[in-house]
Design a protein around this nucleic acid. Structure first.
Lengths: 335, 335
DNA sequence: TTGTAGGCGTTATCAT
DNA sequence: ATGATAACGCCTACAA
């Protein structure tokens, strides 16, 4: 069933050298004659030799894998926010010898982390109920958190400045004469949501306008339409909504249409993260933007240096990407 | 930096038994006294023992990983079609000991396949220019192809019946009085596109209506807007469009609006695969539907049986999932 | 420059 | 029911 695996021994025998020499050639190490090196290499391609990763890992005590932990059960798979970041990650990992093990479910997370199959991990905006950060920290495995900033922790973080993101959104609405601006937020189990809420509360207080917050179960509104409708009906004076994801914004748009609110005239809506759909729908969604790919790249970059420098540097890497507001068609001046 | 890894030896010593016994309890094999078993287990948790996967793999000659090959460069990452299938896959893999290694880029594909780090692979609708199927076949690694049916090959395939999908779409338009129905297709390097084209040609011929085909570079229209506009302008009599993906349909909707065509009255549009956005936008997109999660589940299922039965069964697994047409708001009767 | 040999952590065979 | 011990394929001192 499997190819009879040819090993370092086979090619050593064939080349009349020791396995040591072959190993040297494989690892591109010095100490082998130009002649023999050539001979060995030829035989390697002739026999289509492929090193056994497991054996190598066994002695080198590494795995060659980088794990990516995606939260939110399988729902998040469809989340463009994560996927764009993964694109950035892929781009960098491509240039290395590492493989990417992506885990989408809680069970897989456990398996991945418990089983020592990765050298380092990238954790996407963790949820409190899914991953115990203390436990994670005790694992002593190099980790970078992407997409949310964990306060008072020793974790390296790469995140978007969502706090000022919401702030800009609310402010732009305010400048457009809106005085009743709501926040449609993701679940509070997400550290991301906490930032959003914090940012919202802060600016709302600063502007001295009332606070309206609706917390959803996810970063989209599927299955919670009635909740949103109820919220909108209960707070008829709301004229602007800031959402903690573009998907939520999209959902609200549809609900608004259904209950007869025109966008943006009767209701202005702002999303978050500038995912592709925002400009694929009509009206195009106003949103906040951050370079997600770059975020991904930065995160793996950091992880790779942690992996390559055995020295555990003590300083805490914490990179916060700036966001900017993109005005499109779901927002307007309130008459 | 790393935990001093405690091994089977350590726990053997501590328990005053041989490594063999420890190994037996780890693998839940018979031949170890109830007493000693208990003792060993206790020590294992006490020392927080975790088996070394590499060592195990080395002797067992497997890796415990399943690879997933996603085509289309990193663009496909955002493709809900694939992602939904991955959801199905995850659901099954969750119940096993396997890990999922997802590869999004051509380079990673190579690495993954060349390096023997997976026991089996799931290949998503391959592109001719990205993966040489002959080469793949020579790898002798258990493989299941998802999302496209490869004719005249020995590959196991799990795919949607897209041929009858397009057929239904065109027919429904025809029944609604449309006589000029176009196909907006993905790249011909995709086997999937070939099926779409085949289905389209067939039904168009059967109905004796003219054929209009536009081949795009991807399964969405980003960056090719002008191409589509040109196509539409050149063929003014087209009143209905069948797209080989929902993303294409969405793109066409926007273009139509821009050039002043109302949907569905002046132009009816049908997508493909019933991805979530279709019902998140307005008007809601008419499309064809297939149980993608189930497709994913079936595919891994098949792969797992291949993996578990050393017997290479000779018959060719070929599962084609039925599609059905979902009428929504982007299609109407042509007056 | 090249070779010898021990060890990485498991599993599995064969004794006991 | 248990224990030695030889693999598994590779790397790496240490010798030569």
């Amino acid at each position: 069933m499997k190819n009879k695996n040819i090993s370092i021994k086979d090619i050593a025998k064939r080349a009349n050298v020791s396995t040591a020499s072959v190993s040297r050639v494989i690892s591109n190490k010095p100490g082998v004659g130009k002649e023999t090196k050539k001979r060995i290499e030829d035989i390697m391609v002739e026999l289509d030799y492929k090193p056994n990763i497991n054996a190598r890992s066994l002695v080198k005590k590494n795995t060659g894998n980088i794990g990516v932990i995606v939260p939110g059960g399988s729902k998040a798979i469809q989340n463009a926010f994560f996927l764009t970041i993964i694109e950035g990650i892929s781009r960098i990992v491509d240039q290395t010898e590492y493989n990417l093990i992506v885990s989408f479910t809680t069970k897989q997370h456990k398996k991945l982390l418990d089983t020592n199959i990765v050298d380092g991990i990238l954790v996407f905006a963790p949820r409190k109920n899914e991953i115990d950060l203390n436990w994670l920290s005790n694992l002593k495995i190099p980790t970078v958190i992407i997409g949310s900033f964990i306060e008072n922790s020793t974790f390296d973080c790469v995140s978007a400045d969502e706090k000022s993101g919401v702030k800009m959104s609310v402010e732009s609405l305010y400048q457009n004469n809106h005085r009743h601006v709501a926040l449609l937020n993701g679940p509070s189990t997400s550290y991301q949501s906490q930032i959003y809420e914090l940012g919202y509360k802060t600016i709302v207080e600063e502007l001295e306008i009332p606070s309206y917050v609706l917390e959803l179960e996810e970063f989209d509104i599927k299955g919670q339409e009635s909740l949103v409708i109820e919220f909108l009906n209960k707070n008829k004076n709301i004229t602007g909504i800031v959402c903690s994801s573009d998907n939520i914004a999209l959902g609200v748009m549809n609900i608004a249409k259904e209950i007869g609110l025109t966008i943006p005239n009767q209701l202005s809506i702002i999303g978050s993260d500038n995912t592709p759909i925002t400009s694929m729908v009509s009206p195009k969604i106003s949103t906040t933007n951050v370079d997600l790919k770059q975020m991904g790249e930065t995160a793996v970059g950091r992880l790779l240096t942690k992996l390559n420098s055995n020295v555990q540097d003590e300083y805490n890497f914490n990179c916060i990407f700036p966001m900017d507001y993109i005005e499109r068609e779901t927002t307007t001046f309130l008459k």
